[in-house]
Design a protein around this nucleic acid. Structure first.
Length: 491
RNA sequence: CGGGAUGUAGCUCAGCCAGGUUAGAGUACACGUCUGGGGGGCGUGGGGUCGGAAGUUCGAAUCUUCUCAUCCCGACCA
């Protein structure tokens, strides 16, 4: 087969870019740092959205929508928050264009300057908490459990499709609670929702944990994260859930009257995942032939390609295929019959491989005679000829098996690529020669963390929830440490 | 914001150094035909303000200057 992708081995990021374009997921646009998400890529995102939305609603959340623009003054109300985002904000300064007097097309009308500039939201905490102020008076108004599906803009210096674009799609949950315990519980609940989603639907193993002071969200008291490992040995932060304490309540003066009639500040959480998950999906599972999709997220789980000469054969095949597709659909399988006559079978095989369709069925005259069908798995690239008897349940079961197998493969890879080290030399050696996750002792100071980052570019991805207490010494400072933390080079 | 590079057909690029017929190739596209179990063969055809502006010259894709844009490496990236 002709190679259309740069191989992973040759150049990992070129492979990634090639794959995004050739699998028809997205393409770069005329706007700096912004991509066009193409129908196939968007269909996968919609699968993610649908499942996440279901999970959010199941845990008691509702959707709402807040403005794209945020008055500039809102940002200065929370000091850490503005520090975190100031350098990457797009700002609206005018509201009108006019024709240039010198005939140079359209120019900004200088008379149409806004009195207060508007920020294109990089995240919505400020506008939402300004709104919540009006929604909350009494403990009876709490909790508020809102989510919004939206686009946000962060003016990044360097962008990569899906992983870091200037504009991206995401959901952001913003909740308000009467007590600290409740807000913390919510923060934990949502990182668990993300973890379940990543592992069960994306077949993406993730490590849940807390961010260090250094890596925490701007304005949060605690940030929980799910960290995934990509095939090049780098970590990808795939979702975060923040405990915001009373910071935004203070900044926007959001108080409620408790049962005792006393005013209290409201407690908050916020949490989000973005189209970056598409990048995670691609980099976790795919190979040199293209995308590998876990069946639960595949827009088409099964594609059927007819192989025929002439209309008569196609009609005969179509008759048989109709029975199979009806059976599959009744089993809840998303199946596509590609009977286009303007592409040849070999072309279609390569195309669906690039697009990561989990199972391909090919049926031709030969099969009609023998009562068989060819079943090809995308994840293993294996092919077998099966009898048509009971084919539908076989396929439905196989989809489950593929889902599990993709996850297991990623788990095995992560296990191989997770190293426990006890010295700084070992740490540097693993970073340089192997990559992946590194579990090491750390003295808990930002100073040490920054020095390690400075010297090696590795960062603390998280302090894992499931790590057990263990006495040791910090690999850098030699000071005592109670537990290992997760280091890696990161996207 | 520093360092480097590149803008020629929808896409990937050659041609530029040493200026000179009608600016090429692959791929994609359209039509015809033989085909059809892994991106098919053959034939025909359409498609270009050579990023933009100014200059040098009898003559500029090619040389000069300016300008715009993009990419890569850094810095930056809760």
């Amino acid at each position: 087969m002709a190679k259309v992708l740069t191989s992973k081995k040759e150049n990992y990021s070129q492979w990634y870019n090639d794959l995004v374009v050739k699998a028809d997921l997205a393409e770069s646009s005329a706007v700096r740092g912004c991509m066009v998400i193409k129908p196939y890529g968007y269909a996968i995102w919609e699968m993610m959205q649908a499942e996440l939305d279901r999970m959010f609603k199941e845990t008691g959340h509702v959707n709402a929508y807040f403005p794209l623009f945020i008055p500039k003054s809102f940002f200065s109300k929370e000091a850490d928050h503005v520090d975190g985002f100031a350098k990457e904000c797009a700002v609206v300064t005018h509201y009108r264009l006019k024709n240039d007097e010198n005939g140079n097309g359209v120019v900004v009308d200088p008379d149409a300057k806004l009195e207060e500039e508007l920020i294109v939201r990089p995240t919505s905490e400020t506008i939402i908490w300004n709104t919540y102020k009006n929604w909350i008076q009494s403990y009876r108004d709490l909790p508020i459990l809102c989510n919004q599906w939206a686009n946000v803009v962060r003016w990044e210096m360097r962008t990569r499709m899906f992983l870091r674009t200037a504009e991206f799609l995401w959901q952001e949950g913003h909740t308000a609670h009467a007590t600290k315990a409740e807000a913390l519980e919510e923060t934990e609940k949502m990182i668990n929702v993300y973890s379940n989603f990543a592992q069960n639907f994306m077949a993406l193993p993730v490590i849940m944990g807390a961010k260090s002071d250094q890596e925490r969200f701007a304005g949060a008291l605690e940030t929980f994260t799910i960290e995934a490992l990509m095939q090049d040995g780098k970590a990808l932060q795939s979702g975060t859930s923040h405990f915001l304490g009373q910071n935004f309540a203070k900044a926007f003066d959001v108080k409620f009257t408790n049962k005792e009639g006393k005013d209290e500040l409201v407690w908050a959480s916020s949490w989000g995942v973005s189209t970056r998950l598409m990048g995670a999906l691609i980099m976790a599972h795919s190979d040199d032939n293209g995308l590998v999709l876990p069946p639960r997220l595949a827009p088409h789980q099964v594609v059927i390609v007819p192989i025929y000469k002439g209309q008569e054969q196609l009609d005969a095949i179509r008759e048989k295929v109709e029975i199979i597709t009806n059976e599959l659909r009744s089993l809840g399988v998303r199946v596509k019959f590609d009977d286009r006559d303007n592409q040849r079978p070999g072309w279609k095989f390569a195309e669906y491989e690039l697009k990561g369709v989990p199972i391909r069925l090919a049926i031709g005259a030969r099969d009609l005679e023998n009562g068989t069908i060819e079943v090809a798995r995308r994840d293993t690239l294996s092919k077998e000829t099966k009898s048509l008897d009971g084919i539908s349940t076989y396929i439905a079961d196989l989809l489950e098996e593929i889902q599990a197998s993709i996850f297991q493969k990623a788990m095995d890879f992560r296990a191989d690529m997770t190293t426990i080290v006890d010295t700084y030399d070992e740490f540097k050696d693993v970073l340089k020669n192997k990559g992946g996750f590194i579990l090491a002792h750390w003295d808990g100071t930002t100073e040490t963390e920054l020095k390690i980052k400075d010297e090696t570019k590795a960062t603390i991805r998280c302090i894992p929830f499931d790590s057990t207490d263990e006495d040791g010494v910090c690999i850098y400072s030699g000071k005592p440490s109670k537990r290992r933390v997760l280091f890696a080079l990161a996207y």
